[in-house]
Each structure stands twice: as structure tokens, then as C-alpha cells.
Design a binder for these strands. Structure first.
Lengths: 215, 215
DNA sequence: GTCTATAATACGATAGAC
DNA sequence: GTCTATCGTATTATAGAC
């Protein structure tokens, strides 16, 4: 990949963070990248296609950064710890903010949608691996679609990241509440085998056939 | 309130839905409202202030629409049912999309932040009332900050709504997974009193002092 | 309060020199 | 591949007629 292309890709990400989707243009991106404005169109055809490429580029880069850390997660509480770490680090780096901006832009710019969905799914797939491992031997594996849950967590986390921009204190409390919730769920694992089987039976009785009647 | 102001307020909401924050301008809003472009500045001073006013206006309107429905919720599953109903209705009406667009815009436009936070908190406060009622007599009241949880749910839901715009199928699976999760949590209420006390004791043992050590 | 007209600036995108 | 220059359009915001 040419040097200019790389500059434009990271310039696009930087611009999305600093100016948001509403303030992102070929000119602002080129200024951030330190290259001529016309090169946006020469290399990528249009601003939207550059943003789409930048989304894939940035997501791959970031997910790779956390893959190792996520691979070591073996409990729900540890997962929330990683989430908090990710939240703290990415708040300054801003790569989750990029996903938020692109999600907003993709609502009315169909060309952004596939790339944004792909960027999100990089996170979701990684998260699903962790969930499958963490939730193994718990009732959740049996009753909850882990792929759907991973999507819900990833999308929800981006929403929380966006909310952090308008109410930092509230977002902190929200994250703390999720930590408490994870601690609770984790505590159920500490039940003795007899109790655990009773819980499982109860769950099975109550939620049986739910997935059939719901779709 | 003058007729023109009202037209501009709803025109602003409509424009955010149809064109996103990136495509929202005094001209597009005025076109949607059917009034002259200069009136945006006469009545509201700037586009951002109009958007801020529209946010408050729209959120009050919408929350009022669901207040009655939320007041009748008495279980977690019923809450998720309302969430799905809200998701379906607002997908076409698009008022949650408005919050998503404003959240994205507020990240880099400080004047939008207070209004967006206020619009979100209207939902959050309503949700907190429901949670306090639904979670009463469950271990969650004791161990989880319901205000923080309400914020997490509201922000997360907006994130999921945004995600729906780039991957409708994935969003549907995510919502289904949350329904399954709610069913599970609700099932724990069905445990007999003895088991329930055992669960509660286990939770207390595991999560004790967690909130102190975490902050 | 509402309109037209306009100023000053920014936008996407292209043509053509180098 | 990179640059300058430019076209046509859209932007915020204001001045002034009505």
C-alpha cells in the first residue's frame, strides 16, 4: 500500500474522531493526512469509499490489539474488566468513537453500511469466542444465542461510548452497574452442584420452547 | 409557541431521520418544515440551537407516549416486550434514530451535548422507575445501582438501534438474545424460597464490598 | 414575522500541468 | 502520483424590503 493511501486512511480515522461524521470532508481528511485534497478521489474515488476503507482498516488494527487480552478472559467479571480497560484506552484513542460516527453516518449513506457492519462484526466475532468460553457450563449456553448476545453487547457498548460524550458521569455509573451485574452472574457459578442443578431445572421449566414461540 | 417554530421543530426531527446529522442543515430543515430558510436563524439563532430544542421537544413527546405502557410493566420479560414494541414502532417513526444522530453530533458539537443528555435522561428516568418496581424483591436491587443500569440499558438500546441500520438481521438476533436473557433472569424468581435464599446468600458472599474496592 | 438577496465560505469532483 | 486551478453547488448567516 502506498504511503499516501496509508496517510489518508489514518487521517480519515483521526478526522472522524476530531470532527465527527458531520465535519468530515475530503478537505478536512486531507488536512489531517497532510496531503492534497484531490488525492482522496484519485486513490479512493469518493469520501464515502475512503471512510469505508478506513473503517475496515481501523477495526482490524484495533481488534488485533485486544485479541491476545481477550483470549485470556475466562470469566464474566474478567470480560467486564477488559471492557473497562478498552473503554478507558479507546476513550483517548477514540476508535470506538469512530464506529459510533460511522454507524450514525451509515443510517443515511448506504455505501457506509456494509463497511460499518464489517467493522462491527470483527468485534462481535471476537467477543463471541470469549462468550462461548466464559459461558460454557452455565445455563446461558443452553438458553441464550451467544452470537446474538455478542452483537447486543458490542452494539450496546458503542452506544454507551457515544453516551459518554454527553454525560461522562452517567456513563461511568452505567459501566459500574454492568460490572455489578457481571459479578452477580459470576456468583451463580459459585453455587454448589445441587443448587446449580435446581436452578438449571427451574430455568428449563420456565423458558422451555420460548425460542420456538418467539420467532 | 408560534406555528413556524413548531414546524421547524418537527421539520428538524424529520430531517435528522431522513438525512442524518451529516445531512442536516438550515436549508434541509426548512425544506422539510415548508418554511423559509432564514427563519431558522430568526427563531433559534443557529442550526445547533434548533436541534437542541427539537431534541427536548421530541423526547418529551415520545416518552409521554410510552409512559402509560411502561407503568404497567411488572416483570423483566414484560419490560423486554415493551422494548421490542418500542423498537418496532420507533423503527418507522425514527425517534430513537434521532437520539443516535444527536449523540454522534454532540461528540464534536458541545452545544448539542446538554440537550442530548437531557433527551436521554427522560428515557432513563422513566426506565429507572420501571426497573425499581420490576427488580424489587430480587437480589439485583441489593447489588446493582438501578440508575446506572437504566442508563446502560437506554444507551445500549440506542446503540442497538443504530446497529439495526447496518445489519437488520443481526440486530434482530441481538434483541432475541436479550429476550432470552430476560427470560432467564425472570425464571430465577420462580425458585422456591429456600433455593432463593441460598442464591442470595451466595451472591452476598461473592460480591460483598465489591463496590468499595472498585471505585 | 416573513420574505428576497446576498456575502463569504466550504463542499465534491474533475481537468490538466508536471 | 501529485499538484494547481477551477466549476457548480451547498453551506451559515445577515441586511433590508415588505
Amino acid at each position: 500500500m502506498s504511503d499516501t493511501k496509508a496517510k489518508l486512511l489514518s487521517g480519515a480515522l483521526q478526522t472522524l474522531i476530531e470532527h465527527g461524521i458531520a465535519g468530515t470532508s475530503a478537505r478536512t481528511i486531507a488536512a489531517a493526512a497532510g496531503v492534497n485534497q484531490a488525492l482522496v478521489f484519485y486513490h479512493f474515488g469518493s469520501v464515502d469509499e475512503l471512510l469505508a476503507a478506513a473503517c475496515r482498516h481501523g477495526a482490524e488494527q484495533r481488534v488485533a490489539l485486544y485479541r491476545e487480552q481477550l483470549a485470556q478472559v475466562s470469566s464474566l467479571s474478567e470480560l467486564v474488566d477488559v471492557a473497562r480497560d478498552l473503554h478507558t484506552k479507546e476513550k483517548s484513542a477514540g476508535h470506538l468513537a469512530v464506529l459510533g460516527q460511522l454507524l450514525a453516518g451509515a443510517q443515511t449513506q448506504p455505501r457506509l453500511a456494509p463497511a460499518t457492519a464489517a467493522g462491527m462484526s470483527l468485534w462481535t466475532e471476537e467477543l463471541e469466542l470469549v462468550l462461548a468460553r466464559v459461558l460454557a457450563d452455565t445455563p446461558l449456553t443452553e438458553f441464550v444465542d451467544t452470537a446474538g448476545l455478542a452483537t447486543a453487547i458490542a452494539a450496546g457498548f458503542v452506544g454507551l461510548e457515544l453516551y459518554e460524550g454527553v454525560d461522562a458521569e452517567g456513563a461511568e455509573r452505567a459501566l459500574a452497574a454492568l460490572e455489578q451485574l457481571a459479578a452477580l452472574a459470576g456468583a451463580l457459578d459459585g453455587l454448589g452442584p445441587v443448587l446449580q442443578r435446581a436452578v438449571r431445572t427451574q430455568l428449563r421449566r420456565t423458558t422451555r420452547k420460548r425460542s420456538d414461540s418467539q420467532d
